[in-house]
Simulated assay, not measured.
Amino acid sequence: MLLRLAYLGVTNALAMLRLLPVSDRAKDVEILALRHQVAVLERQLHGEKVRFDPADRAFLAALLHRLPRDVLRRVRLLVRADTVLRWHPRPARPTARSALTTQTRRAATHGPVHPRPGVAPGPGEQHVGVPKDPRRAARPVHQGRRVDRLGDLARCGDRPGPERTSDTWASFLRSQAEAILAMDFFETVTVTGAHLYVLAAIDHATRRVRVLGATARPTAAWVTQAVRNLAMDLQDAGCRTKYLIRDRDGKYPALVDTILADTGIEAVLSGVRMPRMNSVMERWVQTVRRRSG
């Protein structure tokens, strides 16, 4: 490719030298003749694309990329003007990873970088994010903002501070296990071949399973009564359940969340097609299916 590109550059430079003594009238005639030949070639191609070698692309791009876009659109070419501009190598955009890494390390070791210029910084900190108080500078993590770019810290050789935490779904399940109840439907087949929908709930802390009922047609009235019975059982047992995880199945009527809210239980809906958010219940359902199969 480099050899052909050098050949094209030399031959076209000699052609340019040949055009110096030619009059403008002769050049205009030659341009019109070339445009007409391009039009004839386009008619013969019947809409098929012309394939250019990499060297031809590089030469055309270097020759035409300095023309304004409106002028380039009026030039008669076998390809579109936008295609020629795409052929020209563009300078790489500056990556923000280096700046982000610098800010992450600064925020993790010294304190928060003030996000908006012109806003008065807090006590003991400057606009650049370096606190004046040396005792604050010695702290591994500030209290104001959580640093999420742990990957950048790892690449820089820094370890995350001991006070840096993350409010993830897994940490929520672990910290609130004593107050979480999960509920879900699963389908089973009886010995006679009948299909039944089973509604069950499981306690995250004790793994105690409550089978709320089984029916061939889980109507709204049936589901509402099953959830009402569950709420009464939880109150009688003195359970400290605060959250009930369920999916977005259409079998649950809106009254279910109202019944739970009246007993102080908040319904937490899992994401769409995200069974891992209700993983405890899903594992129990899979166990039941394996043993029953």
Rank of each mutant, 00 (worst) to 15 (best):
Arg76Val: 15
Arg76Cys: 10
Arg76Asn: 14
Leu77Trp: 05
Leu78Gly: 02
Val79Ala: 01
Val79Leu: 11
Arg80Phe: 05
Ala81Pro: 04
Ala81Lys: 03
Ala81Arg: 04
Asp82Gln: 10
Asp82Glu: 09
Thr83His: 07
Thr83Asn: 03
Thr83Gly: 00
Val84Thr: 07
Val84His: 02
Val84Ala: 06
Leu85Phe: 05
Leu85His: 07
Arg86Glu: 10
Trp87Gly: 04
Trp87Cys: 06
His88Leu: 15
Pro89Thr: 15
Pro89Gln: 14
Arg90Asp: 13
Arg90Gly: 08
Arg90Met: 12
Pro91Ile: 07
Ala92Ile: 06
Ala92Asn: 11
Arg93Val: 14
Arg93Ser: 06
Arg93Asp: 10
Pro94Gln: 11
Thr95Asp: 15
Thr95Leu: 15
Thr95Trp: 14
Thr95Tyr: 10
Ala96Met: 13
Ala96Gly: 08
Arg97Phe: 13
Arg97Pro: 03
Ser98Leu: 15
Ser98Trp: 14
Ala99Ile: 09
Ala99Thr: 12
Ala99Cys: 13
Ala99Phe: 15
Ala99Glu: 15
Ala99Lys: 15
Ala99Asp: 14
Leu100Trp: 14
Leu100Asn: 12
Thr101Lys: 05
Thr101Tyr: 02
Thr101Ser: 06
Thr101Gln: 06
Thr101Cys: 04
Thr102Trp: 11
Gln103Arg: 13
Gln103Trp: 09
Thr104Leu: 00
Thr104Cys: 03
Arg105Leu: 10
Arg105Tyr: 02
Arg105Cys: 08
Arg106Pro: 00
Ala107Glu: 02
Ala107Thr: 13
Ala107Pro: 01
Ala108Arg: 00
Ala108Gly: 06
Thr109Glu: 09
Thr109Asp: 10
Thr109Val: 06
His110Asn: 09
His110Pro: 00
Pro112Glu: 02
Pro112Cys: 03
Val113Gln: 04
Val113Trp: 03
Val113Glu: 02
Arg116Ala: 01
Arg116Asn: 04
Pro117Ser: 01
Pro117Phe: 01
Pro117His: 02
Val119Gly: 05
Val119Gln: 01
Val119Arg: 04
Val119Thr: 07
Ala120Ile: 05
Ala120Tyr: 04
Ala120Ser: 08
Gly122Arg: 10
Pro123His: 08
Pro123Asn: 11
Pro123Gln: 07
Pro123Val: 06
Gly124Gln: 14
Gly124Phe: 08
Gly124Asp: 11
Glu125Met: 15
Glu125Cys: 09
Gln126Trp: 04
His127Met: 12
His127Ser: 13
Val128Cys: 12
Val128Arg: 09
Val128Ser: 11
Gly129Ala: 07
Gly129Arg: 08
Pro131Met: 04
Pro131Gln: 12
Pro131Cys: 07
Pro131Leu: 00
Lys132Pro: 01
Asp133Trp: 02
Pro134His: 13
Pro134Tyr: 11
Pro134Lys: 15
Arg135Gly: 08
Arg135Val: 13
Arg135Asn: 06
Arg135Leu: 10
Arg135Cys: 08
Arg136Leu: 01
Arg136Tyr: 04
Arg136Lys: 11
Ala137Thr: 11
Ala137Asn: 02
Ala138Gly: 14
Pro140Lys: 07
Pro140Gly: 08
Pro140Asn: 03
Val141Trp: 02
His142Tyr: 10
His142Ile: 00
His142Val: 01
His142Glu: 06
Gln143Ser: 09
Gln143Phe: 10
Gln143Lys: 11
Gly144Pro: 03
Gly144Ile: 03
Gly144Cys: 12
Gly144Asn: 09
Gly144Asp: 12
